[in-house]
């Protein structure tokens, strides 16, 4: 499978000369299978560029939303295939006890927040709710599971017989766990990320920043490295960078994290445009 990062930023898009290497677009990752199935993980602002890169012969695409916070949703109406008649667009996202997925998406895709409504999109839309499911999408198996982050949020494990990745862009497994990482059994996200080839994981904060932002739903780089070690990930991609962190700060944050934890696996900084071929 081919994994490409189209947006690696968390919380707020942050374009500018200080963020050109890591990128300023918010969360979006594409996963292409050997048989042509296209999965899009989250619809942050990075999805706009992905949409422009897709060939005109596209028949269907699956957008897997981890949750509905704006930095994972803002690019959705700018995704080109949504405006092409006849293209099947499947949108998967976490279930809620109050409204269905389509109704919750319509809160953004309607005036006064946005001029275009869901019903105005020309593609053939299908909505699917997930909370703790494993589903088959083309050549992929996809497992969704709730993880620790405010409001219903899932992480995804995507695998074939040859490779597996886990995508947990917004995740605070250390919340409330004073002795993190405590144990596999009691760690959020463990089942999703166990022994994956590539783990794409939230690493928004420095250790000092985390102290004042507990409960915001994100991880420090140290927590991310420890989590990756606990689950036995073969490669870690730190992701969901804080908008206040420029390229130099991110270089330093990741380097210092690696020096502190000394991981046994490679760490590939999550940069916009990065492509990883697995399996």
């Amino acid at each position: 499978m081919k994994v490409t990062l189209w947006g690696t930023r968390g919380s707020l898009a942050s374009p500018g000369p200080d963020t050109v290497r890591y990128g300023g677009n918010t969360s979006c990752v594409s996963v292409e299978g050997p048989e042509g199935t296209l999965l899009v993980l989250d619809a942050g602002t990075g999805i706009r560029v992905l949409g422009k890169s897709i060939s005109s012969g596209l028949k269907s695409v699956h957008i897997l939303l981890t949750h509905l916070h704006m930095d994972h949703l803002q690019g959705l109406p700018f995704f080109e295939p949504l405006r092409i008649p006849g293209v099947e667009v499947h949108i998967w996202g976490p279930a809620s006890t109050t409204q269905n997925l389509e109704a919750r998406l319509m809160r953004y895709l309607s005036p006064p927040l946005f001029p275009v409504r869901v019903r105005d999109l020309l593609s053939e839309l299908h909505f699917h709710e997930v909370s703790a499911n494993t589903m088959r999408i083309g050549e992929f198996c996809v497992t969704a599971q709730l993880i620790i982050h405010p409001n219903p949020t899932v992480g995804y494990r995507i695998w074939t017989s040859h490779a597996a990745i886990a995508y947990l862009p917004d995740h605070e497994p250390a919340l409330g766990a004073d002795d993190f990482p405590h144990s596999k059994e009691w760690t959020s996200g463990y089942a999703l990320a166990q022994e994956v080839d590539v783990l794409i994981h939230d690493s928004q904060y420095t250790t000092d920043e985390y102290q004042t932002r507990r409960g915001f739903g994100h991880s420090s780089i140290i927590h991310t490295l420890l989590f990756a070690g606990l689950v036995g990930a073969k490669e870690l991609v730190p992701f969901h960078h804080d908008p206040a962190h420029n390229d130099d700060v991110l270089d330093q944050l990741i380097t210092q994290g690696i020096e502190a934890v000394q991981p046994s696996f490679p760490v590939t900084p999550g940069k916009e445009g990065l492509t990883i071929n697995i399996g």
Partner: peptide, 18 residues
């Protein structure tokens, strides 16, 4: 031992602090 459900993990974290 499989991972506990997220709601159970959060319940334990709350209990640890009460």
């Amino acid at each position: 031992m499989p991972q506990q459900e997220i709601e159970v993990i959060l319940a334990r974290h709350l209990a640890e602090h009460l």
